[in-house]
Amino acid sequence: MIHRLAVNPILFYFFTSDSNGTGTMNDTLQREQIEKQVDEILSHYTEVQGNLISIMHEIQTLYHYLPKEPLRVLADRTGFTMQRLYSIATFYNHFSLEPRGKHEVHICTGTACHVKGAPRLVDELERELGIKEGQTTEDMNFSLHAVRCVGACSLAPVVLVDGITLGGATPKSLTKLLNKLRKEDETEPSGGNGNGKQP
């Protein structure tokens, strides 16, 4: 958690493109749009104090991660320092400073799921997707994250795909599901982003 602050990706994030034209969120037009979006989110709250984490949740729901630009707007609007926002973004597991895949696969590694074979499912998914836990596929289609208990322990082992709970998961049922998603994406290339969907 806080000691992870020292790792490189964050520094990288800090110092990379801001106004040099290579980033994706940097022309004025986008800045204006981002300001509008952040203001819209802020308008849901009568006061910012005490609601910072909720606000950051909303930003992450909108962009599927926490890009630098909206955080900067948030800092400007609220008076929180960027340092404070980064400390929160890096401390809490739920927040991500890196873009996540179109489909988010969360595999539960809570105790109930662990004793019912979650470690094997992690191995299987890593192999099937060709990435390690915590990573996103190169085509930005899938990201894989281990989470600790999603509160559906009686159905262990549990996998959440785009927020939908899959109980009693097996390597086979997972492969089937991934293939289904891949196929759907093929037939509908601009297919809706399932992220943030609630069960």
């Binding site: 958690m1 806080i2 104090q49 005490g50 609601n51 910072l52 984490i53 909720s54 950051m56 949740h57 929180f80 404070r84 400390s87 929160i88 401390f91 809490y92 597991n93 739920h94 927040f95 989470v147 600790r148």
Partner: peptide
């Protein structure tokens, strides 16, 4: 009112939870 956590086990501890409610990391 509702206050949201963000995936940190230690925030279940009373003083860490309060810290989190005060817009800070949960220490």
């Amino acid at each position: 009112e509702i206050r949201l956590g963000a995936g940190a086990f230690v925030c279940g501890e009373a003083t860490a939870l309060i810290s989190s409610c005060e817009d800070r990391i949960g220490t």
